[in-house]
Amino acid sequence: MTATFAADARTPADLLRSALDGDPARPLVTFYDDGTGERVELSVRTFDNWVAKTSNLLQDELNANPGDRAALLLPAHWQTAVWLLACWSVGVAAAPGGDPEAADLVVSGPDGLAAAQACSGERVALALRPLGGRFPQRPSGFLDYATEVPAQGDRFAPYSPVDPDAPALEIAHDGTVLKLTGDETMRHARAGAARLGLGPGDRVLSTLSYDDWEGLEAGLLAPLAAGASVVLCRNSEGLSTEQWERRTESERVTLRLG
Rank of each mutant, 00 (worst) to 15 (best):
Q137N: 14
C119D: 11
P139N: 12
V162C: 03
V162I: 07
D99I: 09
V149C: 08
D111Q: 13
S108C: 03
A125Y: 09
F142R: 00
D163K: 11
P100F: 09
G112Y: 01
A157W: 08
P110L: 13
P130E: 12
A151E: 12
A95N: 01
G109K: 01
A127N: 08
L105I: 05
L143F: 09
R129M: 02
D163L: 11
Q152M: 15
D174C: 02
G97H: 05
A151N: 11
G112P: 06
L169H: 02
L143V: 04
L126S: 07
P158W: 00
G98A: 09
A172E: 05
E148G: 06
A94F: 02
L169M: 06
L105T: 03
G175P: 01
D165N: 04
Q117V: 15
A94R: 00
A115H: 00
Q117L: 15
R138Q: 10
R123M: 10
D144E: 08
A115C: 03
E122L: 14
G97N: 04
C119Y: 15
P164R: 15
I171A: 02
L113Q: 01
L105K: 00
A157Y: 06
R138Y: 10
L178C: 07
F135W: 11
S140V: 13
T147E: 11
P167S: 13
G133I: 02
D104G: 12
R134Y: 02
D99V: 12
C119I: 15
G153Y: 09
A103Y: 07
G97T: 02
G112T: 07
V177P: 08
R155Q: 12
L113V: 03
L128M: 02
H173D: 06
D154K: 00
A114W: 11
D154S: 08
G153N: 07
A94D: 02
D174K: 01
S108I: 04
D154A: 12
R129H: 04
L178P: 00
P130R: 02
E170H: 13
A102M: 04
T147V: 14
G112H: 06
V107T: 05
G121F: 10
R134G: 08
P158N: 04
A166E: 09
L143M: 09
A114G: 09
Y145E: 01
D163F: 14
Q137Y: 14
G121M: 12
G98L: 04
Q152H: 08
T176Y: 10
G112Q: 03
A151T: 13
A172I: 08
R134W: 01
A125E: 05
L143H: 05
A125V: 03
E170M: 12
P158Q: 07
V107M: 15
A95F: 01
G133M: 07
P136W: 05
E148V: 15
A127S: 09
P136F: 03
P100A: 06
S140K: 14
A172F: 01
G153C: 09
G112F: 07
A166S: 15
D104H: 10
L178Q: 08
D163R: 11
Q152Y: 02
V149Q: 04
